[in-house]
Deep mutational scan, measured.
Amino acid sequence: HNLTITQGKLFFHYNPKLCLSEIHKMEEVSGTKGRQERNDIALKTNGDQASCENELLKFSYIRTSFDKILLRWEPYWPPDFRDLLGFMLFYKEAPYQNVTEFDGQDACGSNSWTVVDIDPPLRSNDPKSQNHPGWLMRGLKPWTQYAIFVKTLVTFSDERRTYGAKSDIIYVQTDATNPSVPLDPISVSNSSSQIILKWKPPSDPNGNITHYLVFWERQAEDSELFELDYCLKGLKLPSRTWSPPFESEDSQKHNQSEYEDSAGECCSCPKTDSQILKELEESSFRKTFEDYLHNVVFVPRKTSSGTGAEDPRPSRKRRSLGDVGNVTVAVPTVAAFPNTSSTSVPTSPEEHRPFEKVVNKESLVISGLRHFTGYRIELQACNQDTPEERCSVAAYVSARTMPEAKADDIVGPVTHEIFENNVVHLMWQEPKEPNGLIVLYEVSYRRYGDEELHLCVSRKHFALERGCRLRGLSPGNYSVRIRATSLAGNGSWTEPTYFYVTDYLDVPSNIA
């Protein structure tokens, strides 16, 4: 807008934040220059609390790290170098490059900038070799853009010569660093050979998330399962459950009422301010606690030095998902009996873990797994792929695949051998790939016309006998059925096997 004052003059007093240069501009645009008398524009009460600059400061050096910015700028000295009290560095987070010096300023003089007072450097006698002032900004957020400017702080001049310097606002972004852990990993099994893994992005990506790394490792069953005799009275049979499938998407929606109208769909109840505040506090606490764990609990591995020492970490090797089922080394339970199943799973520490690289999504279907087997899954978020990966501390989750139908069934015939004193040795093959492992066998036998009897055969007993022995049988026709019990439950009964026990007292003698 054009402003013209045809008559009258300007009068400025007691404006401590208004620089004289701005008042002189007002004289020019209003056409009143030359009308004012000496005392109409006070030299001592206008701009006496402001830094009124008329020179431009330029930054000469900028260096960044993930949490620091090192700045240096060209030296500046007023005509009387004693008038320079120091520099004021202003900075704040700036997602967009549209910041002005006066953003967030209120009537009390406060604003949204963080201000650092910096002492002037030592003055050199040689004007050509003056030290460049600077400042190291610490405690910054990774991968965050900051708006920065600097200006001088000078003393009051009796001659009211307006001098000083100020830089333009520059924008500097800190470097990326390792992201925080992925949030809320959930693993479920939808079949006997697959596990579905879902997660949420890290709360602090500290860069642009480029991919996720998912490692999985087959877990050995508890050692007590191999040692305890679950045929003993009072000892509860062990059981394991597989990871249940995901709930429906509708039930997972946030901010939804727990109660549904019987007449149909209901609208979600909005969260109160107290609920939102509580969630923010919980989120802040979780982030602080995660940072504490990362800094205190997890110790970084030592990389190899120039002395030739090897990095103890196993090298990563990509495998196809079809090879995942046989990740671990199978060892027989008892070496003397080769027909026992290889369900003991000690994992070799030198073995390469299978892994998958996930790009542009937060889910993965891990296939080719062994049925009813526990897996430990390790999830890392990465925001750099080359020249070397920059990934987060791992988040861990466990899951067990679903049982395989008929995996616990005894394959092959049940054979028998009759000894003296009416002892019958029953023999059968253990299931080759049971659900988890076989903890015991149930032997059901009966003599024709009598009630059915049951015998429990422990895992250890089966390994020693290759089956079991029935003792003290009365003469007669017998039928026997056997079924295995694994961590997933009972298998199917075998087809009945028949044998006849004679009275050993009636056996004919070869003595003449």
Rank of each mutant, 00 (worst) to 15 (best):
L280V: 14
F499K: 01
G412P: 07
V327M: 08
L440P: 00
G472P: 06
R459G: 07
G491L: 01
S344K: 07
S203N: 15
S474P: 07
H352Q: 12
T303G: 09
C382F: 00
Y441L: 00
K302C: 10
G374F: 13
D311Q: 07
T415M: 13
H294G: 05
F337G: 14
W216E: 02
E452Q: 09
E404Y: 07
S248R: 10
A309L: 12
H425M: 07
F499E: 00
M427Q: 02
Y500L: 11
S479C: 03
L470T: 02
S284W: 15
V359Q: 13
I418M: 01
E420L: 05
F289N: 08
Y441R: 00
G467V: 04
W242P: 10
Y445P: 01
C267T: 06
V457I: 08
I418N: 11
N208Q: 15
Y292D: 08
Y498T: 05
S257K: 07
C231T: 04
L321D: 05
G234K: 07
S262A: 07
R376T: 10
L487Y: 12
R481Y: 07
E433S: 13
V480T: 09
G234E: 14
D204L: 10
C456E: 03
Y478W: 10
N208F: 06
S315W: 12
T347M: 15
T373Q: 15
Q219M: 06
R218Q: 12
H371S: 13
H371M: 01
E430V: 09
R301H: 12
Q256M: 04
S486M: 00
A394N: 08
G489S: 06
F499Y: 01
G476S: 01
T288N: 13
E247H: 09
A463D: 13
L487Q: 09
L232P: 12
K233E: 14
K357P: 12
D250S: 11
A395T: 06
D222W: 14
A394M: 11
T502V: 13
G476I: 00
L235S: 07
K253P: 04
V397L: 14
L232I: 13
A399C: 10
T210R: 03
V327N: 07
V359W: 06
C468R: 02
Y259S: 12
A335E: 13
R318P: 08
S320F: 11
F246S: 10
E281T: 09
T415S: 11
R400I: 07
R481Q: 03
V423K: 03
E442I: 07
S458Y: 09
E417T: 12
P338S: 08
T241A: 12
E417R: 11
F499R: 01
G489N: 14
S392A: 02
D503G: 06
V334P: 12
C456L: 02
E351L: 15
V443A: 03
H425K: 09
L473P: 02
E495P: 10
R481F: 03
E388R: 08
E224G: 10
Q380F: 15
G234M: 11
D323I: 13
E362V: 13
D273R: 14
R466T: 05
H352Y: 06
I377Q: 02
K361T: 10
E350W: 03
E356M: 13
K287N: 12
V324W: 07
E217P: 09
V334C: 05
F246W: 12
A220S: 12
R240H: 07
V439I: 08
R466I: 09
V327H: 08
D273T: 04
T343S: 08
E350V: 13
N326L: 15
R400F: 12
S342I: 03
P349Y: 12
A381T: 12
W242M: 04
P434L: 01
S243A: 12
S243M: 13
E227W: 09
D408K: 01
P300D: 15
D273M: 10
R400Q: 04
C391N: 01
T288S: 07
E404L: 04
L426R: 01
A381M: 02
V443N: 00
F355S: 10
L280A: 15
E417S: 08
G234T: 08
V334M: 12
A220M: 06
R318Y: 06
C231Y: 04
D506P: 15
A336T: 08
Y445L: 14
R316L: 14
T272A: 10
R471N: 10
G308A: 12
I438E: 01
S248L: 07
V296W: 08
V424R: 04
S268C: 15
F419Q: 07
T272E: 12
F289W: 12
D311V: 00
Y498K: 12
K460E: 05
T272M: 09
Y498N: 07
R316S: 14
F419K: 08
F419T: 15
S367K: 06
L426I: 01
K317L: 12
D506E: 05
Y396A: 07
N360H: 09
V359S: 09
V443Y: 01
R469N: 11
T333Q: 15
A381D: 00
L228K: 07
L228D: 11
Y375V: 10
G476Y: 00
P508S: 04
E389T: 11
V423P: 02
